[in-house]
Structure formats: C-alpha cells, structure tokens
Amino acid sequence: MERSDVSLSFSLKKHLHFRSRSRAEGSDKSGFSVDIEFSTGEEFTVLFGPSGTGKSLLLNMLSGIVKPDEGFVRVDGRDVFNSTAGIDIPIRDRRTGYLFQDYAVFPHMTVFENIAYGIDRLPRSKIKAKVEELLELMRLGGLENRFPIELSGGQKQRVALARTLATEPKVLFLDEPFSALDYQVREKLRADLLIIHERYPITTLFVTHDLEEAFIMGEKIAVINNGRLEQFGTREEVFYKPKTRNVAKFLGVRNIFSGRVVSADGTTVTIENPELGEVKALVHPEERPFAAGEKITFGIRPEEIMVILRI
C-alpha cells in the first residue's frame, strides 16, 4: 500500500419521506432529509452526533449503497457520483473500504477466504502472501481456518478490517464499528485502527455517537445533527470552541446559558444573565470581537469552576 493523498469532498441531499402514523396530526407525510457538505484529506475524520441524525445514511450515500437525490461525491478530484452530470459509478468500482457495525463477515467462509475475497483475481501466491501479511498485522495468526462463528466480536471486526485493507481502498468508511464490543476490546481496536491509519494514511470517515470515541479518534470532527452539519473542524476547534448550542450540548457541556453582552474589550467580556448576574469571561484571542448589547449563548465547564470562600 502506497501513501495516498486522496481527498474526499461531497455535497449530498437525500429526502426521506414516510407516512406518519397518526393522520390526526394533520399531515400524512413527514420526512427527514440529509443535506451535508464538507471535504477532507487523509486525516482521521469522525462523524459525530446523536443517534438517528443521518450519519450512517451519509456513509451509505458516500459509498453508493444508497443513492442520493441530489449532489456529488468526489474522491481524489474525480466524481463517483454527480446527480447533475448523471454520474453514478457502481459500488464495485469505487474502491471504498467499509466496516459495518455488525461486521458483515461472510459466515460461510473461513477467515482466510474472507480476507482473500476481494483479491481473488490475483495469482495464488500473491493472495497467500497478502493474506498472511494482514493476518499478522491484525493479530489473527493461527485463526485462518476458523469460521466466523468460532470467533469473538473483536476478531470478526479485525477480519472485516483485514478483508477491506486487502483491496487497497482509496477511502475507508467505518459505521460505528466497535459499538457492539465491550470496553477493553473497543479500546484495543481503536488503538489498532490508529496505528493502521498511521501506517496506511487512507482518507477515513468514522461514525460514532460516543463522545469519548470521537475525542480519541478524531483528528477532525464533523458534528452532525438532524441531517445537517453543525460544525466541522479539528478536534481542538470543535471541543474547545463549539460554534452552536447544539454542538456544545453534544460535547457534554451541561451548563449552557443565554445572556447579553454588557461590555467587551480585546481580552475580556462581561455578560449579563438573569440567574447568574454579571459574568466576566476571557475572550479567546482568535475569537471575533463582541459588541455591547449582543445576545449570546455561553457555557461554563464544570472543571473550570472554582469556589472561593470570601472572608
């Protein structure tokens, strides 16, 4: 596997309509749509957001499993899907690596056959060498003749990862791949994945609704809510400078208040809140300046609260 400089950019829309259960509520159709756009390079990018907000649907659209209604998907500058140009490259030609939450290892094939499945056109000696290399890398040595039913969840997911890496994908999509595993196994697999990403820097999108996982894995984080992108940036940007109230909420900020700016200078801002009174805060040097009278939302991290006994 050579080092890749593959980039992924896309802008996708999908309108899902389904009949709502109660007609009494007025409308007989309700819907959910996904409308998301961002670009990423070889960084490990995490798609983070609560369940049911369209993260998996996004991966399905990017890989071609689900056809978007509108938009484009560009891998390495080349359109693999473009609704206006009528381009829709078949899934098999997109060279997408994909890990499913439920592993999707082929139950009727051995570990060896699973890993070799996507490269069966190569000469036999090459297949063998490659599978052996991946067995070694994924700590699966000695299991090559087992069937998936004889493996643990973590082993199954490692087989799935080896199977996908064998085909040298251009991009790698992971749909909550470790959520069905217990804590220790999950930690080990996360570490494995990061090591592998270091060795083969493939453009990677990792879906999770687990805050800790997002923090550990994501060099870049896209926060998704209700089919929309709330924020996209580096881990530091997203975690320490959330752009919206929702992002702050998803990132575990519990104390979120609304207020009005009383006064501001380059370094501090004074905020007025009915419950807290006047609050003085430091302004991040890169933050845009605040203006007096502006309505804002602010959060207080519990670890930064200090209680001082005033005598």
Binding site: S63, I65, D93, Y98, F100, A104, F106, H108
Partner: peptide
C-alpha cells in the same frame, strides 16, 4: 449488508449472487 460488503469489495451483481446470496 453481506451483499453490500461483497459489492464494496469489487464484485459484480452476478458474483454477489453466486458467492454470497445463493450459498447463504
């Protein structure tokens, strides 16, 4: 998802049918 996994690994619809769907 098993059929999708096979497609993602580069298989045609016919190959998916022959190696995944029918055997399972």
């Amino acid at each position: 998802n098993l059929e999708n996994a096979a497609r993602l690994l580069g298989k045609t619809e016919w190959e998916v049918l022959k190696t995944i769907t029918i055997p399972l």
